[in-house]
Simulated scan of single mutants.
Amino acid sequence: MEKLLQDRVALVTGAGGGLGRAHALELARHGARVIVNDIAGADFGAAARSVVAEIRAQGGDAQLHLGDVTRSDDMQQMAQQAHTAWGRIDILVNNAGILRDKSFAKMGLDDFRRVLDVHVMGAVHATKAVWAQMQAQHYGRIVMTTSSSGLYGNFGQSNYGAAKMALVGLMQTLALEGARRNIRVNCLAPTAATGMTHGILPAEALERLTPERVSPALIALCTEDAPTRMILLAGAGSFEAAHVTLTQGIQLPDGADTGARLCGLLDQVRQRDGELVPEEGWAQYQLELQKAADAARAAA
Protein backbone atom coordinates (compact mmCIF):
# COMPACT_ATOMS: atom_id res chain seq x y z
CA MET A 1 0.00 0.00 0.00
CA GLU A 2 1.25 3.47 -0.89
CA LYS A 3 1.86 5.49 2.26
CA LEU A 4 0.47 8.90 1.32
CA LEU A 5 1.51 10.58 4.57
CA GLN A 6 4.95 9.12 5.19
CA ASP A 7 6.70 10.98 8.04
CA ARG A 8 4.02 13.66 8.24
CA VAL A 9 3.14 14.75 11.79
CA ALA A 10 -0.55 14.61 12.65
CA LEU A 11 -2.51 15.71 15.72
CA VAL A 12 -5.96 14.21 16.32
CA THR A 13 -8.17 15.56 19.10
CA GLY A 14 -10.65 13.32 20.85
CA ALA A 15 -8.83 10.25 19.53
CA GLY A 16 -9.49 7.82 22.36
CA GLY A 17 -12.42 6.16 20.62
CA GLY A 18 -14.92 6.27 17.78
CA LEU A 19 -13.99 8.40 14.80
CA GLY A 20 -10.90 9.84 16.48
CA ARG A 21 -9.46 6.39 17.07
CA ALA A 22 -10.20 5.33 13.48
CA HIS A 23 -8.65 8.56 12.16
CA ALA A 24 -5.48 8.11 14.22
CA LEU A 25 -5.05 4.50 13.09
CA GLU A 26 -5.68 5.39 9.44
CA LEU A 27 -3.22 8.29 9.52
CA ALA A 28 -0.59 6.00 11.04
CA ARG A 29 -1.33 3.32 8.46
CA HIS A 30 -0.43 5.88 5.80
CA GLY A 31 2.88 6.64 7.50
CA ALA A 32 2.02 9.65 9.68
CA ARG A 33 3.42 10.15 13.15
CA VAL A 34 0.43 10.76 15.37
CA ILE A 35 -0.31 12.65 18.57
CA VAL A 36 -3.33 10.90 20.08
CA ASN A 37 -5.18 13.47 22.16
CA ASP A 38 -8.02 12.88 24.59
CA ILE A 39 -9.20 14.12 27.96
CA ALA A 40 -7.71 12.34 30.95
CA GLY A 41 -11.04 11.34 32.49
CA ALA A 42 -11.49 9.03 35.44
CA ASP A 43 -9.40 6.31 33.75
CA PHE A 44 -6.54 8.76 33.06
CA GLY A 45 -6.77 8.35 29.31
CA ALA A 46 -6.83 4.55 29.16
CA ALA A 47 -8.65 4.52 25.81
CA ALA A 48 -6.19 6.94 24.20
CA ARG A 49 -3.27 4.97 25.63
CA SER A 50 -4.69 1.89 23.97
CA VAL A 51 -4.78 3.69 20.60
CA VAL A 52 -1.12 4.69 20.98
CA ALA A 53 -0.21 1.11 21.85
CA GLU A 54 -2.14 -0.20 18.86
CA ILE A 55 -0.35 2.15 16.47
CA ARG A 56 3.03 1.19 17.90
CA ALA A 57 2.18 -2.51 17.72
CA GLN A 58 1.55 -2.06 14.00
CA GLY A 59 4.98 -0.45 13.53
CA GLY A 60 3.80 3.15 13.63
CA ASP A 61 4.96 6.12 15.67
CA ALA A 62 2.54 7.71 18.14
CA GLN A 63 2.49 9.64 21.37
CA LEU A 64 -0.21 10.26 23.93
CA HIS A 65 -1.42 13.73 24.87
CA LEU A 66 -3.96 14.13 27.63
CA GLY A 67 -5.58 17.53 27.45
CA ASP A 68 -8.90 19.32 27.06
CA VAL A 69 -9.63 21.17 23.81
CA THR A 70 -11.57 23.80 25.75
CA ARG A 71 -8.30 24.86 27.43
CA SER A 72 -6.02 26.86 25.18
CA ASP A 73 -2.97 26.03 27.29
CA ASP A 74 -3.59 22.31 26.83
CA MET A 75 -3.68 22.71 23.06
CA GLN A 76 -0.50 24.78 23.09
CA GLN A 77 1.15 21.98 25.07
CA MET A 78 -0.06 19.42 22.54
CA ALA A 79 1.45 21.38 19.67
CA GLN A 80 4.72 21.84 21.56
CA GLN A 81 4.88 18.13 22.28
CA ALA A 82 4.56 17.32 18.58
CA HIS A 83 7.17 19.89 17.59
CA THR A 84 9.61 18.73 20.27
CA ALA A 85 9.22 15.10 19.23
CA TRP A 86 9.29 15.47 15.46
CA GLY A 87 10.24 19.05 14.59
CA ARG A 88 7.12 20.03 12.66
CA ILE A 89 3.31 19.85 12.54
CA ASP A 90 1.71 18.94 9.23
CA ILE A 91 -1.85 17.86 10.00
CA LEU A 92 -4.47 18.82 12.57
CA VAL A 93 -7.73 16.90 12.81
CA ASN A 94 -10.28 18.74 14.97
CA ASN A 95 -12.36 15.75 15.95
CA ALA A 96 -13.23 16.20 19.65
CA GLY A 97 -16.91 16.66 20.34
CA ILE A 98 -19.85 16.05 22.65
CA LEU A 99 -23.63 15.89 22.41
CA ARG A 100 -26.21 17.48 24.68
CA ASP A 101 -29.38 16.83 22.68
CA LYS A 102 -32.77 18.31 23.62
CA SER A 103 -35.37 20.35 21.85
CA PHE A 104 -34.55 24.06 21.97
CA ALA A 105 -37.50 24.74 24.30
CA LYS A 106 -36.15 22.28 26.87
CA MET A 107 -32.44 22.93 26.43
CA GLY A 108 -30.60 24.81 29.15
CA LEU A 109 -28.19 27.53 28.14
CA ASP A 110 -25.34 25.72 29.89
CA ASP A 111 -25.80 22.74 27.56
CA PHE A 112 -25.95 25.03 24.54
CA ARG A 113 -22.81 26.87 25.60
CA ARG A 114 -20.91 23.68 26.48
CA VAL A 115 -21.41 22.16 23.03
CA LEU A 116 -20.21 25.35 21.33
CA ASP A 117 -17.24 25.50 23.69
CA VAL A 118 -16.08 21.98 22.85
CA HIS A 119 -16.75 21.96 19.12
CA VAL A 120 -16.08 25.55 18.10
CA MET A 121 -13.66 26.93 20.68
CA GLY A 122 -11.99 23.54 20.92
CA ALA A 123 -11.21 23.72 17.21
CA VAL A 124 -10.13 27.36 17.56
CA HIS A 125 -7.75 26.53 20.42
CA ALA A 126 -6.17 23.60 18.60
CA THR A 127 -5.89 25.47 15.32
CA LYS A 128 -4.41 28.54 16.97
CA ALA A 129 -1.81 26.30 18.59
CA VAL A 130 -0.53 24.97 15.24
CA TRP A 131 -1.16 27.95 12.95
CA ALA A 132 2.13 29.82 13.41
CA GLN A 133 4.16 26.64 12.90
CA MET A 134 2.27 25.81 9.73
CA GLN A 135 2.79 29.35 8.46
CA ALA A 136 6.52 29.18 9.19
CA GLN A 137 7.00 25.87 7.37
CA HIS A 138 4.68 26.87 4.49
CA TYR A 139 2.68 23.69 4.88
CA GLY A 140 -0.40 22.63 6.79
CA ARG A 141 -3.51 20.51 6.45
CA ILE A 142 -6.38 21.21 8.85
CA VAL A 143 -9.65 19.30 8.99
CA MET A 144 -12.72 20.55 10.86
CA THR A 145 -15.39 17.99 11.73
CA THR A 146 -18.75 19.37 10.64
CA SER A 147 -22.06 17.50 10.37
CA SER A 148 -25.21 17.21 8.33
CA SER A 149 -26.92 18.48 11.48
CA GLY A 150 -25.18 21.79 10.91
CA LEU A 151 -25.47 21.80 7.14
CA TYR A 152 -29.13 20.82 7.02
CA GLY A 153 -30.49 20.84 10.57
CA ASN A 154 -31.64 18.06 12.86
CA PHE A 155 -34.45 18.07 15.43
CA GLY A 156 -33.15 18.34 18.99
CA GLN A 157 -29.66 19.47 17.97
CA SER A 158 -29.82 23.26 17.85
CA ASN A 159 -26.61 23.54 19.87
CA TYR A 160 -24.76 20.87 17.91
CA GLY A 161 -26.03 22.17 14.56
CA ALA A 162 -25.01 25.73 15.37
CA ALA A 163 -21.55 24.56 16.37
CA LYS A 164 -21.06 22.42 13.29
CA MET A 165 -22.13 25.17 10.89
CA ALA A 166 -19.84 27.59 12.71
CA LEU A 167 -16.94 25.29 11.84
CA VAL A 168 -17.81 25.62 8.16
CA GLY A 169 -17.52 29.39 8.45
CA LEU A 170 -14.22 29.02 10.29
CA MET A 171 -12.94 26.71 7.57
CA GLN A 172 -13.95 29.12 4.80
CA THR A 173 -12.00 32.04 6.25
CA LEU A 174 -8.95 30.09 7.43
CA ALA A 175 -8.61 28.53 3.98
CA LEU A 176 -8.43 32.03 2.48
CA GLU A 177 -5.98 33.27 5.09
CA GLY A 178 -3.78 30.19 4.84
CA ALA A 179 -3.63 29.88 1.07
CA ARG A 180 -0.44 31.89 0.58
CA ARG A 181 1.41 29.67 3.06
CA ASN A 182 0.11 26.39 1.60
CA ILE A 183 -2.22 25.78 4.53
CA ARG A 184 -5.30 23.97 3.27
CA VAL A 185 -8.40 23.79 5.43
CA ASN A 186 -11.38 21.52 4.82
CA CYS A 187 -14.43 20.09 6.55
CA LEU A 188 -15.35 16.45 6.99
CA ALA A 189 -18.98 15.57 7.69
CA PRO A 190 -19.01 11.95 8.90
CA THR A 191 -21.86 9.53 9.28
CA ALA A 192 -20.65 6.89 11.70
CA ALA A 193 -21.69 4.85 14.69
CA THR A 194 -19.79 6.24 17.66
CA GLY A 195 -20.44 6.85 21.32
CA MET A 196 -22.23 10.04 20.29
CA THR A 197 -24.76 8.13 18.16
CA HIS A 198 -25.52 5.34 20.63
CA GLY A 199 -29.26 4.88 20.99
CA ILE A 200 -30.04 7.14 18.02
CA LEU A 201 -29.65 4.77 15.06
CA PRO A 202 -31.01 1.21 14.59
CA ALA A 203 -28.64 -1.74 14.93
CA GLU A 204 -28.68 -2.66 11.24
CA ALA A 205 -27.61 0.86 10.30
CA LEU A 206 -24.87 0.91 12.91
CA GLU A 207 -23.33 -2.20 11.35
CA ARG A 208 -22.76 -0.30 8.10
CA LEU A 209 -21.77 3.01 9.65
CA THR A 210 -18.38 2.07 11.03
CA PRO A 211 -15.85 4.84 11.76
CA GLU A 212 -13.33 2.96 9.64
CA ARG A 213 -15.46 3.63 6.57
CA VAL A 214 -15.20 7.38 7.16
CA SER A 215 -11.46 7.72 7.75
CA PRO A 216 -10.37 7.24 4.09
CA ALA A 217 -12.08 10.59 3.44
CA LEU A 218 -9.81 12.14 6.06
CA ILE A 219 -6.73 10.93 4.17
CA ALA A 220 -7.96 12.66 0.99
CA LEU A 221 -8.09 15.94 2.93
CA CYS A 222 -4.61 15.56 4.46
CA THR A 223 -2.30 14.71 1.54
CA GLU A 224 0.05 17.07 -0.24
CA ASP A 225 -2.47 17.32 -3.09
CA ALA A 226 -5.45 17.88 -0.79
CA PRO A 227 -8.16 20.35 -1.84
CA THR A 228 -9.01 23.38 0.24
CA ARG A 229 -12.43 24.70 1.33
CA MET A 230 -14.10 21.38 0.57
CA ILE A 231 -16.99 20.01 2.62
CA LEU A 232 -16.58 16.26 2.18
CA LEU A 233 -19.31 13.95 3.46
CA ALA A 234 -18.57 10.30 4.22
CA GLY A 235 -20.39 7.30 5.62
CA ALA A 236 -20.89 3.59 4.94
CA GLY A 237 -18.21 3.74 2.22
CA SER A 238 -20.02 6.54 0.36
CA PHE A 239 -18.60 10.00 -0.29
CA GLU A 240 -20.34 13.25 -1.28
CA ALA A 241 -19.66 16.98 -1.33
CA ALA A 242 -21.75 19.81 0.09
CA HIS A 243 -21.66 23.41 -1.12
CA VAL A 244 -22.78 26.76 0.24
CA THR A 245 -24.23 28.38 -2.88
CA LEU A 246 -25.54 31.75 -3.99
CA THR A 247 -28.45 31.99 -6.43
CA GLN A 248 -28.69 34.67 -9.09
CA GLY A 249 -31.82 36.00 -7.37
CA ILE A 250 -33.80 39.00 -8.57
CA GLN A 251 -33.45 42.78 -8.59
CA LEU A 252 -36.32 44.94 -7.32
CA PRO A 253 -36.63 48.74 -7.51
CA ASP A 254 -36.66 50.77 -4.33
CA GLY A 255 -40.13 51.52 -3.01
CA ALA A 256 -42.44 51.33 -0.07
CA ASP A 257 -43.91 48.09 -1.41
CA THR A 258 -40.60 46.28 -2.02
CA GLY A 259 -41.01 44.00 0.99
CA ALA A 260 -44.55 43.07 0.00
CA ARG A 261 -43.48 42.37 -3.58
CA LEU A 262 -40.60 40.21 -2.40
CA CYS A 263 -42.98 38.02 -0.39
CA GLY A 264 -44.60 36.91 -3.64
CA LEU A 265 -41.33 36.36 -5.48
CA LEU A 266 -39.36 34.11 -3.12
CA ASP A 267 -39.70 31.16 -5.50
CA GLN A 268 -37.78 33.19 -8.08
CA VAL A 269 -35.16 34.10 -5.49
CA ARG A 270 -34.71 30.39 -4.75
CA GLN A 271 -34.36 29.45 -8.43
CA ARG A 272 -31.07 27.55 -8.70
CA ASP A 273 -30.31 28.03 -12.39
CA GLY A 274 -26.92 29.71 -12.60
CA GLU A 275 -26.21 29.51 -8.87
CA LEU A 276 -22.65 30.14 -7.72
CA VAL A 277 -20.24 28.63 -5.23
CA PRO A 278 -18.60 31.89 -4.12
CA GLU A 279 -14.85 32.12 -3.73
CA GLU A 280 -15.29 34.56 -0.84
CA GLY A 281 -17.96 36.59 0.95
CA TRP A 282 -17.42 39.57 -1.36
CA ALA A 283 -19.21 37.58 -4.08
CA GLN A 284 -22.55 38.67 -2.61
CA TYR A 285 -21.52 42.34 -2.72
CA GLN A 286 -20.28 41.99 -6.28
CA LEU A 287 -23.37 40.18 -7.53
CA GLU A 288 -25.81 42.58 -5.92
CA LEU A 289 -23.98 45.74 -7.00
CA GLN A 290 -23.69 44.40 -10.55
CA LYS A 291 -27.42 43.66 -10.68
CA ALA A 292 -28.20 47.12 -9.31
CA ALA A 293 -25.95 48.72 -11.95
CA ASP A 294 -27.56 46.65 -14.71
CA ALA A 295 -31.02 47.71 -13.53
CA ALA A 296 -30.02 51.35 -13.46
CA ARG A 297 -28.68 51.17 -17.01
CA ALA A 298 -31.83 49.43 -18.19
CA ALA A 299 -33.98 52.16 -16.63
CA ALA A 300 -31.95 55.01 -18.12
Rank of each mutant, 00 (worst) to 15 (best):
D74E: 11
M75E: 08
M75G: 01
Q76W: 07
Q77N: 15
M78W: 11
M78F: 11
M78G: 08
A79L: 08
A79K: 02
Q81L: 13
Q81T: 14
Q81G: 11
A82I: 00
A82Y: 02
A82D: 00
T84F: 02
T84Q: 15
W86F: 15
W86E: 10
G87Q: 11
G87D: 12
R88I: 10
R88W: 11
R88K: 15
R88Y: 10
I89E: 06
D90H: 09
I91R: 13
I91V: 14
L92V: 07
L92S: 08
V93D: 14
V93W: 13
V93Q: 14
N94T: 01
N94G: 02
N95F: 05
A96H: 03
A96G: 01
A96Y: 06
G97C: 10
G97V: 04
I98F: 06
I98C: 05
I98V: 14
I98M: 12
L99F: 09
L99C: 09
L99Y: 07
R100G: 02
R100E: 06
D101Y: 00
K102Y: 10
K102S: 13
S103R: 11
S103H: 07
S103M: 08
F104Y: 14
F104L: 14
A105G: 10
A105S: 11
K106V: 07
G108N: 04
L109I: 11
L109H: 03
L109R: 10
D110N: 15
D111F: 11
R113P: 00
R114P: 01
V115G: 01
V115S: 01
V115C: 03
D117K: 12
D117P: 11
V118Q: 06
V118G: 07
V118H: 03
V118M: 02
H119N: 03
H119P: 10
H119W: 08
V120P: 06
V120E: 04
M121R: 13
M121T: 10
A123M: 01
A123D: 03
A123Q: 00
V124K: 01
H125T: 01
H125P: 04
A126V: 04
T127G: 14
A129V: 07
A129F: 09
A129Q: 06
A129G: 09
A129R: 02
W131M: 09
A132Q: 15
A132K: 15
A132C: 04
A132M: 12
A132R: 15
A136L: 11
Q137C: 10
Q137H: 08
Y139Q: 13
Y139S: 13
G140I: 05
G140F: 04
R141M: 07
R141H: 08
I142Q: 05
I142H: 04
V143F: 05
V143A: 02
T145H: 03
T145K: 00
T145A: 01
T145I: 10
T146G: 12
S147W: 04
S148N: 14
S148P: 05
S149N: 13
G150H: 07
G150L: 08
L151G: 04
L151R: 06
Y152R: 15
Y152F: 15
G153D: 03
N154L: 02
N154C: 07
N154W: 05
F155D: 04
F155E: 06
G156T: 02
Q157P: 09
S158P: 11
N159V: 00
N159D: 03
Y160L: 00
G161L: 10
A162Q: 02
A162S: 15
A162T: 14
A163V: 05
A163S: 12
K164G: 02
K164Q: 06
K164V: 10
A166N: 01
A166H: 05
V168I: 12
G169Q: 01
G169K: 00
